[in-house]
Structure formats: C-alpha cells, structure tokens
C-alpha cells in the first residue's frame, strides 16, 4: 500500500470574516508523487501551499504530514519543524551567499559533508560550475535550478513549489521541467506544484487538482488533463 505523506482534511481559510478563500479542501499526496494544483489567479492555490508550509495558519480543517498533525484548531507546528522544502517563482536566493553556501544553508553536520552534498545537488541540476558565484551573477534559469537544489538539500518530506517556472521563457521552461521531473523521480521526491500553466501540470505531475472559488473543482491523473482554449482554463477528461 502507498504511504500517504500529506493528508489535508476539510481545509478552510479566510483572510477576514466575510471572505473565505478556501472552502473545504481535501487532498492526499503519496510518497514519491508529484501533484499539481491548478486554478485561476486568486482561487486560493498559493494560500493552500502556504498553509501546508506553515506560513499561514488556516481557519479550519487539518493538515497531516507523515501521520502527524501539523496544524489544526489546537496544534501548530512551525514551518522550520515541518520538514518541507519551498521553491518560489522569485527564487529567493540569499543574495549575500554564494551558490554553494545557499545550497549548504539548510544542511546540518560537518562542513566537508555539507559541501559534498551541496556540490552533488548542484551537479545534478547542472549548475556546479557556478558554485562560487553569487546569485546576481547567474541567469534566472540557473537561479531556479539553484533554488530547487537548495530546497532538496535537506531531503525534505515534501517539496512545495509555487509557480516555479513562471518567470522563465518557453524553451528554458520546457528543458527545466523535463530535467526536474527526472531528478524528482530518480530521487523519489514528493512534490506539490502550484501553477496556472497547463504545460507545467501535464509534463511534471502524476496527479492534478483543479481549484476554483476555494473548492476542488476536479481532480484526476495528469494525463487526462485537457486545456480549454476558450477561457484559458482546464478540465479533466
């Protein structure tokens, strides 16, 4: 039986009393699975990701990571203790640290071990030649590779990605998506990708969740996802 890593039950969230952003989301993510959360701007997908990360505290419902309640009405495990990784569209690399130091940042242990792990990850993402450069000295595509290497370095239980390829051009996106998926699958990484891009979802994920107006409108295998060009949205066949 597949091990469930993330379990979300009846998740609700409102920023103020009269505006509910999430209206009862349920979601299960298995180990090694890549799940995409799709939906139009403002549908609540980024909020859902932030709640999973512990950067936002939900109004109701439960979030379980590896059979441990990390947030509900009584419990709240802070972000730094949830064992998750985060990749954001802006990359958010630490500008005062070199590339290798960025990747080492979340690692614990001996200095040489940290260096070795970080360098291996940089090799995996093909950016090891920039190990001693600073973030502003490399391109945005390379920065995104570093951001993913950094998030994977501590070997988190779940990797959360918020519009990870959003700021890249089409050709670079496609190349990076294929490489990333291969790395994730080879390493058995569990990932949740928030996106509004059909290509991101179909090429990267195993499972897709479409959120609309704070609710799960549809869910199913990524291969069944169909774009609707009329209104630039999607549906699952």
């Amino acid at each position: 039986m597949t091990e469930i890593i993330l379990e979300i039950k009846n998740l609700r969230h409102s920023f103020n009393t009269d505006m509910e952003v999430l209206k009862g989301i349920n979601l299960n993510v298995s180990r090694g699975e890549i799940v995409s959360i799709l939906g139009p701007s403002g549908c609540g997908k980024t909020t859902l990701l932030r709640i999973i990360a512990g950067l936002e505290n939900q109004s109701g419902g439960t979030v379980n990571i590896s059979d441990t309640i990390v947030s509900d009405s009584k419990n709240f495990v802070p972000t730094e203790k949830r064992d998750i990784g985060l990749v954001v569209q802006e990359r958010a690399l630490f500008p005062h640290l070199t590339i290798i130091k960025n990747v080492e940042f979340g690692l614990k242990g001996r200095r040489d071990e940290k260096y070795k792990t970080a360098l291996n990850l940089l090799k995996l993402f093909k950016v090891d030649v920039y190990a001693n450069n600073y973030p502003h000295e490399i391109s945005s595509g390379e920065q995104q590779r570093v951001a993913m290497a950094r998030a994977m370095a501590p070997n988190p239980k779940i990797l959360l990605m918020d519009e990870p390829f959003g700021a890249l051009d089409h050709a670079l996106k496609s190349e990076l998506r294929d490489e990333t998926k291969k790395i994730f699958k080879d390493n058995g990484t569990t990932a949740i990708i928030v996106s509004h891009d059909f290509e991101d979802a179909i090429s990267m994920s195993d499972h897709v969740l479409i959120i609309d107006d704070g609710l799960v409108a549809q869910e199913g295998p990524a291969k069944d996802l169909i774009p609707i060009t009329r209104n630039n949205s999607f549906k699952i066949a």
Partner: peptide, 10 residues
C-alpha cells in the same frame, strides 16, 4: 524569510 524557515532557520 519563507524559504529560510523551510530550511530550519527561524
């Protein structure tokens, strides 16, 4: 800050 927190930094 968000990314740092996920890297066990608070």
């Amino acid at each position: 800050d968000d990314v740092a927190k996920t890297l066990n930094t608070s």
